[in-house]
Simulated scan of single mutants.
Amino acid sequence: MHTLILVRACATEYDRQGRIQGTLDVPLTPDGRRQAELLAQELTSALGADAVSAIYASPSSAAQETAATLAEALDLKPRTADKLNNIDHGLWQGMLVSDVKEKQPRVYRQWQEQPETVCPPQGESVLAAKKRIAESLRKLFKRHRDDDTIALVAPEPLATLVGHVLRHDEVAELWKPQADRVRWEAIPIEPATTGEAPVTKPQ
């Protein structure tokens, strides 16, 4: 059984301002880099320096920088998961979440409560993103032995969707503030059969 260590990329200026980042490439702030250093210490303490077989990161600068710090602590070389870009929020990218809430309250509420029913203008739907994520994860897991522990660093809301695809739980709170989220979580994954999405082990 694989174990995925799902790590959320550390803080960017857009996180601090409450802006929708999407596919815009925003690097870590100085505070974000300090977060990554503390996160590396926490992970090595919790998991052990030799527990993780490989570490992957989304192509975004924030994920890459976070992964580089973790990889150094884990004595690994970070790899890029090319197809695991963040969700494309189209014309919403760069906007304050509060502006969307104020100017489009019905759409904002629908996005919060039923995000799979909303597609940002000129952006990517949650359903399309889930399909892309599932396919990328299948390919990633095939590269490793069934008992490997793999780390994946991803920005929000991609990280939340990755967790949803693996656990098959409800999609919710995609715009939850970064500071209110857990920094990392371990998700056990049953070996996937050919052509099927990875699934978590029943609890």
Rank of each mutant, 00 (worst) to 15 (best):
T3L: 01
L4V: 02
L6R: 12
E13I: 10
D15Q: 03
D15F: 01
D25F: 01
E37P: 03
L38W: 10
L39K: 07
Q41C: 10
L43K: 04
T44K: 02
A51C: 06
Y56I: 04
S60A: 12
Q64V: 14
A67C: 01
A68V: 08
A71Q: 05
L74Q: 10
D75M: 02
D75T: 09
P78T: 00
R79M: 15
R79D: 03
K83A: 15
K83V: 03
K83N: 11
N85F: 05
G94K: 01
M95G: 04
L96M: 14
S98W: 02
P105D: 00
Q110P: 02
W111A: 03
Q112G: 00
P115W: 06
E116G: 11
T117Y: 04
P120V: 05
G123R: 02
A128R: 08
A134E: 03
E135N: 09
L137C: 04
R145P: 02
D148A: 14
I150V: 11
V153C: 06
A154H: 03
L158G: 00
T160G: 15
T160V: 05
G163M: 12
E170N: 11
L174F: 05
L174W: 09
W175M: 14
W175N: 14
P177H: 05
Q178Y: 10
D180M: 07
V182M: 01
A186M: 15
P188S: 10
A192M: 11
T193I: 08
T193H: 13
T193V: 05
G195S: 01
G195K: 03
V199M: 11
T200E: 04
P202L: 13
